[in-house]
Structures are given as C-alpha cells and as structure tokens.
Computed example of a mutant assay.
Amino acid sequence: MKLKMFYRTQRDLASDLNMLVDTYWQGGIEENLLVDEIKSLYENNEEKILKDSQFTKVVQQQCGKRRLAVVEKILEI
C-alpha cells in the first residue's frame, strides 16, 4: 500500500484514511502497520486532520464515525 507523506487537500487525505482503515478491516494489513501509517499521516498533516482538537468537517463527512473512532483511538495511544 502506497500512501503519500504530505497531502494537498483534506479530501485526498480522508480518502486515503478510508482506504487504510477499510483495508485493515478486510484483513489486508496488520494492526501495527495501520497504527504506524495513521500516526505518520497525522504527524505530517495535522492541520488537515484536526482543528480546535476536533476532526475537520471535511474529514468527518468523508470518513464517518466508525473509521474516525479507530483513528481517534490510535492517536490517543
């Protein structure tokens, strides 16, 4: 799975977050890879994921509650 390091738009970032979590749910990647990739995406694109300690509206709309629940738990580790 090839992910970018830096994203131009929130929609592109949300799309890859969706792909990453969905692939994990389907058994395509291991848990440790999911955690590492989400942390990497967050570190390099923090301003596109969070605003005022909440997920941005675009990310919320594109990803949905269940995927964001997974991402939120990983970022709290």
Results as ranks from 00 to 15, higher is better:
D36V: 05
K73G: 14
F6M: 04
Q10H: 06
V21C: 00
R11I: 09
L41T: 02
T23N: 10
A14S: 11
K48S: 03
K2A: 08
D12W: 01
A69C: 04
T23Q: 06
D52Q: 10
S53T: 08
E72H: 13
K48N: 08
E47M: 06
I74V: 08
Q60G: 07
M19A: 15
L41W: 02
I49F: 05
N32P: 01
D16G: 06
N18T: 08
K51N: 07
E31H: 14
Y42C: 05
G64M: 13
N45W: 14
L50F: 15
L20N: 07
W25T: 02
V71P: 00
G64V: 11
Q26P: 02
R11L: 10
V21R: 00
K65A: 13
K65T: 13
F55R: 14
E47P: 03
A14R: 00
Y7W: 10
R8C: 03
K48F: 10
I38N: 01
M5I: 12
G64D: 09
D22A: 13
E46T: 08
F6S: 07
W25D: 07
K39N: 14
Q60I: 04
K73Q: 12
E30L: 08
E30V: 09
R11V: 10
R67I: 14
L50E: 10
L17M: 14
V59Y: 06
D52S: 10
I38C: 04
S53R: 14
K4S: 12
V35N: 02
K73M: 11
E46N: 11
G27T: 03
V58S: 13
I38S: 01
L3W: 11
G28C: 05
V21M: 00
Y24A: 02
L34H: 03
T23K: 08
L50T: 05
I49Q: 05
I49K: 11
E76H: 14
I77W: 06
R8Y: 07
T56S: 09
W25L: 11
K65M: 07
K4P: 06
R67S: 02
V70C: 11
L3F: 15
K51A: 12
M19D: 13
K39L: 14
E72Y: 05
C63Q: 08
S53H: 15
Q26H: 09
Q62S: 13
A14D: 00
L3E: 08
L68H: 10
N44P: 04
V71F: 01
V59E: 05
T9Q: 12
W25P: 00
E76A: 13
D22G: 04
A69G: 05
N44Q: 12
R66Q: 12
D12T: 07
E31D: 12
Q26R: 12
Y42E: 05
D52M: 10
E46W: 09
R8M: 10
V70Q: 07
R11Q: 13
L41P: 05
